[in-house]
Design a protein around this nucleic acid. Structure first.
Length: 155
DNA sequence: GCCAACGTTGGC
DNA sequence: GCCAACGTTGGC
């Protein structure tokens, strides 16, 4: 059987909420709390075996800190039904859940953060969407070519 | 369907 | 804290 080439993604998280260090300890997690349709739809496009760069946002400095692998998909986000969660969504219902997510597994941590500033010196907006000013999407696709360059920067 | 008001993200 | 860049909501 021929194995499909993985696609690459970038997933943002504020390190105060969930960091690469936490993922390294826990080994895997479900990427819950996504409440943006475009970001959700990107997760639906992901396939098992795809890889995703872990991006620390809203911190100093922001940037790429590691790499993960997609190990599960179409997972109902449980926080949408949890009234105590900040991600509770009163408009979602269990017979037709609005929010689902993927499960990710820790692969590697970058020796040093690849800061947004450095990313801007390496890529233009087309080569890596996260360098676009004002880009608020928390999940983005990454071109294979850009992914290869990024991975080579990890050591 | 339009659009104003409002909310959120996230860099700086 | 400021603000740019959107996404969402709701009146009409």
């Amino acid at each position: 059987m021929v194995k499909k080439k993985p696609s690459y993604w970038l997933m943002k998280s504020e390190p105060d909420a969930y960091s690469i260090e936490t993922l390294e300890k826990e080994k895997e997690t479900i990427w819950d709390g996504i409440r943006n349709y475009q970001a959700r739809n990107f997760m639906r496009q992901m396939e098992i075996g795809d890889q995703a760069f872990f991006y620390h946002s809203n911190c100093k400095p922001p940037g790429i800190v590691g790499l993960m692998e997609i190990v599960g998909k179409n997972i109902i986000d449980p926080t949408q039904f949890d009234k105590n969660s900040k991600y509770y969504d009163s408009k979602s219902n269990k017979s037709n859940p609005r929010w689902d997510c993927v499960k990710v597994q820790f692969l590697i941590k970058s020796k040093e953060i690849i800061s947004l500033q450095e990313l801007r010196s390496l890529f233009n907006e087309e080569e890596l969407l996260v360098v676009k000013k004002g880009n608020r999407l928390s999940i983005l696709p990454v071109l294979e070519k850009s992914a290869n360059l990024l991975i080579s920067k990890f050591n």
